[in-house]
Structures are given as structure tokens and as C-alpha cells.
Amino acid sequence: MPESSPVSPLAPLSGQVMIEMEAVHKWYGTFHVLKDINLTVQKGERIVICGPSGSGKSTTIRCINRLEEYQRGRIVVDGHELSNDVKQIEQIRREVGMVFQHFNLFPHLTVLENCVLAPIWVRKLPRKQAEDIAMRYLERVKIPEQAKKYPGQLSGGQQQRVAIARSLCMNPKIMLFDEPTSALDPEMIKEVLDTMVTLAEDGMTMLCVTHEMGFAKTVAHRVIFMDGGEIIEQNAPQEFFTNPRSERTRLFLSQILHH
């Protein structure tokens, strides 16, 4: 499969490597879920991963912050190779934010408490400073007025924006998104995507599993198509959508674009 160099439609990349996945294999029991995943992500690069259900998209990005173990290959994040050392894994997770499909906010804490928890307990910031930072990010995702509410009192779109703010409060170098909009009603999808676009404009390194092809076209440097645990094709969005090389990609695109 020909490897295409990312053509940035938005900003030139520095060339500094943030994530390096080399020949990563993973099995669930005897089920070979990831097959020889090779992926290099540069600082500031924005990657969209798509593919049919069960193709291993979530598993791939969850390997990057070691929410999933892998049995073969190596992953280097920001210069540190992932190992089995718990302390080292925790250190890497501080630098890698993650946004989940079902938000996973902490329901027993207020929005503000959700946001300051990790900065206080992991980064050891004083509460006052952590709260200032949290309020700044809540303003950025446009819900500072909800700070004292509990997650259960917010709409889905608001909850997802809180989840994004919560990750940003750790000041991560990389953000992982696992289908951040697929649990949302259509009118809420836009508010979350808008938040992600502003994040992209600030130069955040982003890996995003999503089927929002409009988002991929405007924001991504590169689109990756996975099927059956393999990376089938990767290309700049323009090329990817207008001129897919593999038959499977073409089939997938026709399914999600025409209905």
C-alpha cells in the first residue's frame, strides 16, 4: 500500500514526532483485533480514523494511552516508549487527553469539580489555580455558567463539552477522541464539533475516531480507514474522499455518504 505524505491544508507541520506506532498487534484471547498497525503522528497533526463497526478503531487509539494492552510491537508517545511500568503509564496519560463516546463524567461531582480533580490530585496544583484554569476552559467550551451544576443536569452536548474541558485542564499534548458525537442528537453534534474545531485551530495534536466526514474534510490533515483490524488506506482528506484507492474504502464511503 503506498504511503502518502500528509499534505496540510491548514498549517505546516513541524515534523516533530508525537506518536509512533510500530507493527502493533493485539489479540483478545485468540481473536486478532489489531494487525500490524503502523502510524506516525506529528506534533500538531490532526488525524481522523474511520471504518466499519468492529474494525478496531477504538482499540487502536486506546492503545496510545494504554487503556488497552497490546502484545506485539511498540508505541512511543512524546519520546517515551510505553512499558508495563504503572508509574510511567500514569505519566504518559497526563499528557494524553481522552474524550469518550459516552462522556464518562463523574456524576457525583459538579462540573467544576470534574475539571479540577486531576489537576489537583495528579498535577498537584493548588485548588485556586486549578479552578481558575478550569473556568478558563469552561469559558472556551462556552458553558462557564454551568460550573456549579452536576453532569446529570446538563444536555448531552453540554456534557461532552465539559468532558473536553476536563481533558484540557490537564494541559495535554495530545487529544484522543473516540466517537465524541455519536451518542448525541443532531442539534448537539454541531456544538461539540465547533469546540473541536477551535481546538484544532490552536494546533492541538488530535486523533479522532469519527464518522463526521464534514469535520474530517475541514480539519484533518490525514484520514485513516481501518477494516478488520488493519489500516487499509490513509490519505489527505481531499484525495481520500474524491479518489479512494481501495475497493473497501470506496464501498465504506458510499455507505456513509449516500444516505
Binding site: 487503556l67 500514569e90 496519560r93 497526563r94 464518562n104 480533580l117 486531576a118 495528579v122 468532558a163 481533558s167
Partner: peptide, 15 residues
Amino acid sequence: GQVEAAAALGLGYWK
């Protein structure tokens, strides 16, 4: 998901 979200933020087991 609660444990995963906490882990993703860098919190250790006891925290």
C-alpha cells in the same frame, strides 16, 4: 467508563 476516564486523566489505582 468511570475507571477509564479516571485512568485517562492520569489518576492511579488508589486515587
